[in-house]
Write a protein that binds this DNA or RNA. Structure first.
Length: 116
DNA sequence: TAAGTGACGATCG
DNA sequence: TCGATCGCCACTT
């Protein structure tokens, strides 16, 4: 084998899957929980390279500011906004209030995630 | 090996 | 709040 870096992608994906419905998390937070602190950019790269055969709630991941990572007007941005609002998340001008909808993992949530 | 790139984050004005 | 800038790290060329 030449590279094993795929393990890191998988950790990102597994963490994203742990985000509860109706909640959102930031890229940095995901990277942190996945055991890759400071790799926020890598979290984005991992989502961008998500294979089409695995399903993850990628739309629950936002910037640390609560803003959607795509440019306003882009199809991806609109799609993400729609999916979030379907789950009851308030989205104002591509922005989410992290105070209300930000995911704050509890100990048991993390334990559940880590026992796969 | 070096330079370019990116679904980011923190800071500054 | 917004945009520009810099720091960041792994992948690609």
């Amino acid at each position: 084998m030449t590279k094993m870096i795929n393990q890191n992608y998988i950790r990102i994906w597994e963490t994203v899957k742990a985000i509860p419905k109706g909640k959102v998390a930031s890229y940095g937070q995901i990277a942190d929980l996945a055991g890759l602190p400071g790799r926020s950019r890598f979290a984005g790269t991992a989502l961008a390279n998500t294979p089409s055969d695995i399903k993850i709630p990628w739309y629950r991941v936002l910037r640390s500011s609560g803003q959607i990572a795509f440019p306003k007007g882009s199809e991806k941005a609109l799609e993400q906004k729609t999916l979030l609002m379907d789950e009851g998340v308030e989205v104002n001008n591509l922005r989410v209030n992290l105070k209300h909808f930000g995911w704050q993992p509890t100990v048991d949530e993390l334990l559940f995630k880590l026992k796969y």
